[in-house]
Simulated scan of single mutants.
Amino acid sequence: MTQAQRRGTGFTTVRIHRNATALLLAGSLMGLAGCSDSDPKASPSAPSQRPTATPTASPNSTADAEEAAVLAAYTQSWKAQTEAYAKASSAGTGLRKTTTLRALGLIEKDLTTMRKAGQVTTGKPAIHPRDPKVTDGDIPKATLTDCVDTTKWTLIDKASKKEVPLPSTRLVKYISTAKLEKWGAKWMVTELTAQTQPC
């Protein structure tokens, strides 16, 4: 992540502070940006680094099925981002299966910065995607809003395993919006935008 809020990505929701390569988010993929209170559901990650997502209702119509597919694609994208930031590399994470090249480019910038600084993340973000809006067309599109909680998502020095200090003014829980498109039978994240407002 960069010190500025990430625009037009995927996931990344992670943003790295320019001087300390501190996470703010990717996205991205990730972002250790947000407001102050912590989510009890956000716990240190298991090896899978899967972000915590709010459960959704079972689909009972075509519209509900599409909304559920959008939420599943978004959650999968975050899972892949979280895995990538945990090793500062997208290799073997499945990011390309869930995120378009435009969105992936911003995540890869973050990952390059992290590798150069010798940093990775531990733990995982808690995501709470809601209200997907799906529109038909030649290429169906969807948007959704999320409250990303990075309380338990930590940037560390890979060698020392010590936490990297982040700006005290950063948001720890923040509102994020995502755009997706349906490519064939599959929903892909085309853009992730972290807002400056807390949730």
Score class of each variant (00 low, 15 high):
123 G>Q: 02
103 A>V: 09
114 M>D: 00
99 T>A: 12
98 T>Q: 07
92 G>L: 12
103 A>M: 14
92 G>P: 07
83 E>C: 00
108 E>Y: 00
90 S>M: 11
76 Q>S: 11
80 A>F: 06
92 G>D: 02
88 A>N: 02
85 Y>C: 12
82 T>K: 03
116 K>H: 04
76 Q>K: 14
122 T>L: 06
86 A>L: 01
84 A>S: 10
122 T>W: 01
122 T>A: 04
81 Q>W: 08
119 Q>H: 10
95 L>D: 01
121 T>M: 14
71 L>I: 06
90 S>F: 13
98 T>P: 02
86 A>Y: 03
74 Y>I: 00
84 A>H: 09
73 A>C: 09
104 L>R: 09
77 S>T: 03
97 K>D: 15
69 A>E: 13
92 G>A: 10
105 G>N: 15
88 A>I: 01
91 A>S: 14
112 T>H: 00
89 S>E: 06
97 K>G: 13
99 T>Q: 10
122 T>C: 04
89 S>K: 05
81 Q>L: 15
89 S>I: 01
96 R>H: 06
107 I>S: 10
74 Y>D: 11
116 K>E: 10
82 T>M: 07
87 K>I: 07
84 A>L: 08
83 E>S: 00
109 K>F: 06
100 T>G: 12
90 S>V: 09
88 A>M: 08
119 Q>L: 03
115 R>I: 03
113 T>G: 12
124 K>I: 00
120 V>S: 00
76 Q>M: 03
104 L>T: 05
74 Y>E: 07
81 Q>M: 08
96 R>W: 04
101 L>A: 15
92 G>C: 05
118 G>L: 12
101 L>S: 12
124 K>D: 06
69 A>W: 05
116 K>D: 15
107 I>H: 09
88 A>V: 01
95 L>M: 13
108 E>W: 04
72 A>W: 02
93 T>I: 02
98 T>D: 05
116 K>I: 10
91 A>D: 13
95 L>Y: 09
111 L>Q: 08
100 T>F: 05
109 K>M: 09
98 T>F: 01
83 E>D: 06
72 A>M: 14
108 E>I: 07
85 Y>F: 12
87 K>H: 07
100 T>D: 09
114 M>T: 08
92 G>M: 13
116 K>P: 09
107 I>P: 05
111 L>V: 05
82 T>H: 08
115 R>H: 14
114 M>P: 02
113 T>A: 15
105 G>V: 08
107 I>N: 01
106 L>R: 14
73 A>M: 13
87 K>V: 15
120 V>Q: 00
71 L>R: 06
76 Q>H: 11
101 L>T: 14
78 W>S: 15
118 G>A: 11
76 Q>R: 12
73 A>Y: 00
80 A>H: 12
82 T>W: 01
92 G>W: 15
71 L>A: 03
77 S>H: 12
105 G>M: 01
74 Y>T: 14
111 L>R: 07
99 T>P: 01
114 M>E: 04
103 A>P: 07
75 T>V: 07
102 R>T: 12
122 T>Y: 06
99 T>G: 08
